[in-house]
Amino acid sequence: MRRRTFMLNVSAGLGAVAVSGTLWRDATAPSVTAGASPYGPLGPPDANGMALPAGFRGRIVARTGQTVGGLRWHPAPDGGACFAAGTGWIYVSNSEVPLTGGVSAIRFRADGSVERAYRILDGTNLNCAGGATPWGTWLSCEETFRGRVYETDPQGVRAAVYRAAMGRFKHEAAACDPDRRCVYLTEDESDGCFYRFTPNTWGDLSSGRLDVLCGTGEAVEWRPVPDPNPTAIQRQTRHQVGAARHFSGGEGCHYAAGVCYFTAKGDRKVWAYDAVRQRLTSVYDGGGTLDGVDNITGTAAGDLYVAEDGGNMEINVITPDGVVAPIMRLSGQDGSEITGPAFSPDGTRLYFSSQRGTSGSVTGGITYEVTGPFRR
């Protein structure tokens, strides 16, 4: 694979959808509770085993091992994002399998039909989640010992680049903060940390500083990681700073309006880091309809959407007024998890995958689309 720096492209045609709405600006808001969904109750499962509210409909876009847009769809589809592309859009999807993981992309026409599909990263290891950048690239993260971050081109034009400065650890997800010009990173370890990478030049991730979140209460601070690329086992990034805050199984990560939301499946919490006040609180502590918190995304309307790893295979909405409720449920897929939730640029279509589908195997992955009157 060629190693060369991406040229910045911030045109609308390549840019990921910006979320700048009214997500809870006060990250000290009380934890949410189960309540009525803004879309109403779920109906019975459709022909694909998908239960949706009235006015919504779903379809299968791709299946592992089957051809979509000229490409054989990858196994174990995981983290994903949507990018504007001309009059249509692109959905990128990681493959969480060893050695051959990588990333695939599906390009959609304006009417939602598939134009073509192609690979944008090959030969990498357990690509789990990641994050979109404001300059229109996809950060694909390896969830493995000393995992790496690759910056990829959703258009499939430029070669992917390994971003060594972002550290070697069991990477999960990434979320860009354009206000402070940094990238937040989660770590899927039982004692994982929450990181912040600040590039020397915004838009160029080839060099910069990796910090780790520290503190035990709501007031937190950042301290530099001395060795972001450790070679000795005892020097793993999460163990290098004694005051580092630890989270059980860091998962999805999403930034909007001064707050970075991230999930920890072992803690069963959705955390909120208020980047303005440098305060950390949890906005969901379990006890509602949401279980197995995993990938997370949001909309300009201020809603968060959280996918379940297991549980009863739901995607739940968390509203700014403190309500959590299911907006989609898959039946007959108890051996799977929901991954890669992402909205199309116009906010009318939600894409996601069932990583192991009805078979419970990485060869049974299914990628879906839901359309309907989502709040935007």
Rank of each mutant, 00 (worst) to 15 (best):
A18T: 09
V19L: 05
R25G: 12
T33M: 11
T33S: 15
T33W: 02
G43R: 03
D46R: 04
A51S: 15
F56T: 08
T67S: 15
G69P: 05
L71P: 04
A81D: 13
F83D: 08
S93M: 13
N94W: 03
V97E: 07
V97C: 09
I106N: 08
F108R: 10
I120S: 06
L121S: 05
P134G: 12
T137I: 01
S140R: 09
S140H: 10
E143P: 07
R148P: 03
Y150C: 13
R163Y: 12
R168V: 01
F169T: 12
A175Y: 11
E189C: 12
C193Q: 02
F194V: 03
R196W: 07
N200M: 07
W202S: 13
G208L: 01
L210Y: 07
D211Y: 09
C214S: 05
E218N: 06
E218C: 02
N229F: 00
I233N: 08
T237Q: 06
E251C: 09
G252T: 04
H254Q: 06
R268M: 12
K269Y: 07
D274A: 07
A275T: 10
L280C: 08
S282V: 01
S282D: 07
Y284T: 05
G298W: 05
A307P: 00
D309S: 10
G310A: 00
N312F: 01
N312I: 01
N316F: 01
V317S: 10
V317R: 03
P326Y: 14
S336D: 07
E337Y: 02
P341H: 03
G347I: 00
S353E: 03
S359D: 14
I366G: 09
T367R: 06
Y368D: 06
